[in-house]
Amino acid sequence: MGDIHRYLREYYMPHIWCPGCGHGIILGAVLRAIDIAGLDQNNVAVISGIGCASRATGYVDFCTLHTTHGRALPFATGLKMVRPDMKIVVLTGDGDTAAIGGNHLIHAARRNIDITTVVFNNSVYGMTSGQYSPMTPTSRFATTAPYGNLERPFDLCALASAAGATYVARSTAYHVRQLTTYIGRGLAHKGFSFIEAVSQCPTYYGRRNRLGAAPAMLEWQKRNSISIEQAKDMEPAEREDKIVTGEFVNQTVPEYTEVYAQLIGRLGRQGESR
């Protein structure tokens, strides 16, 4: 793979992420996927919400929009509607997407609007120093789950699939090559593409749950990842705590802004009289 520094705002580096944070690895995968896809740097908009992952937009040299908490997808929807020629990438975290922005996720997926969403899932609210998120596994610890998390986490890929996303995949920071491939396929896909990238937060999640430093957390990702095929043959109890990686959905469905452009074309042919 080639050098990706030309996509970075080097004058604004180093970034704010903690030592060993998986988000930098995932952002690298995004940039390599963009590089491999040969996208025009001027025609890519990268949009994020609020949280550690969402700080990514400051560091990358595209049209970048760092929005409000959970709202990256509706901002992206408005931009895509009026600039259907642009490639829109949303970078977001698990709190941003699965909690405060959950409604926007399912509706962007339902519309099948051509946006590639990459969720940096580190199972925790890092920016506010380690509260549990909708992606924190049951019984794991967080600053707001001092007795262990009582809630169940989402299966985000299942959620996106059920809501109608037309490309859905999951990988991890450790599986960075596979992750890059899936992001690349998401970028090439016409429609709403959703890639969950499992990340590591050594500072808050790792430390509180005694998962070791960053290399050990990457090892955990490696050890606990199973393919969709492997998962099929496992009992639900066995699958618990496993990361199922692979492509869950890849289908062709009319894309929203194309459908809208067809409407404009149809009305234009009818003339403007009412």
Binding site: T67, R71, P74, F75, T77, M81, H104, G268, R274
Partner: peptide
């Protein structure tokens, strides 16, 4: 759409405001 513009009914009020800002930036 008759004027070459675009309308969208968003999932909520917050999203509507967000989409408007995104479109204006475009």
């Amino acid at each position: 759409p008759r004027h070459g513009g675009r309308f969208i009914q968003m999932e909520d009020e917050i999203a509507s405001m967000a989409a408007v800002i995104g479109a204006s930036l475009g």
